[in-house]
Simulated scan of single mutants.
Amino acid sequence: MSDSGLQVTDLRVAYGRRRGRVEVVKGVSLAIAPGETLGMVGESGSGKTTIGRALLGLAPVAGGTITFRGQDITSLPRSRRRALARDIQVVFQDPYSSLNPSMTIEDILVEPLRVAGVADGRTRVRELLEQVGLPDDAGERYPNEFSGGQRQRIAIARALALRPGLIICDEPTSALDLTTQAKVLGLLRRIQRETGAAYLFISHDLGVVREVSDRIAVLREGAIVETGDSEQVSLRPAHPYTRRLQLATPVPDPDVQARRRQRRRELMEAGA
């Protein structure tokens, strides 16, 4: 792992104190190289989003280390976190609530540039709109004038504004229909080829994660139970819990789907 990527070692996140203390991330270790996508998949409550929040400095790290571009960022003070925000950005799940409805798209995209002291922010906004496939006049409009897929493109543009090295994609397609999902995933792949940014792609859907990831880490109850190459983990999973997630991915044939549903139920009953 080079010094230019992300390295997480034995990460632990806990809430509460003493007897009421609950550990929600339990010794997670992972690495993401520049230009690579690590997919993190697991059911609701598995700790996926909490790990993303810990990388952003928004969740209490109880143990372990987070190193990004050769710097230990585990416990950076707030004053130094602002500088780090240039390099680690996030695309949230819900494109309807993640954009300020009272601001124009141009103002939404200029805001992080202004905070970072970028002089020619308006020129950068035009570049961003083109990069995510939106027309120049989109900047003059408000979020409620756009579809869900278009709003997520705007959210991606905002994440790209400061040319980050790592983008955390937290369920970025789960609120979209299948056709729009495919377009947004294609956009993310193209942007990665153009920029060389690394992605941590978080989802509950193993099928979606497989589409965009080089490697996959499977999270269950705050711990990684399987990790490996995207195709291997998706098609030939070693852990029973991963097989359960695989069986949850829908298929067109109703008979095959019924058998998959039954097999998944059996794994759940067996405690997988």
Rank of each mutant, 00 (worst) to 15 (best):
K183L: 15
E226P: 11
T49C: 09
D87W: 04
V233A: 14
R193Y: 04
A175T: 14
P254G: 13
Q131A: 11
P254L: 12
G222K: 08
Y15Q: 06
G133T: 06
V61D: 03
L160T: 09
D3A: 13
Q152L: 04
P252R: 12
L56T: 09
V25K: 01
R82W: 04
F68G: 07
L245R: 02
L162T: 09
I168M: 05
G42W: 02
G63R: 04
T123N: 09
A62T: 07
A59H: 01
M268K: 12
D229M: 14
F92G: 13
I156M: 04
D3W: 01
T173N: 06
A54Q: 11
I66C: 08
S230G: 13
D3R: 09
G207I: 06
E36R: 06
R21Q: 08
Y199G: 10
D253E: 14
A157T: 01
I167R: 00
V41A: 01
E140A: 15
V118W: 03
A223D: 11
G165K: 01
A62R: 03
A33V: 01
K48Q: 11
S230H: 08
R244L: 15
G196D: 15
P101I: 10
V218D: 03
E43P: 04
I105S: 03
S79A: 15
R82S: 08
S98L: 10
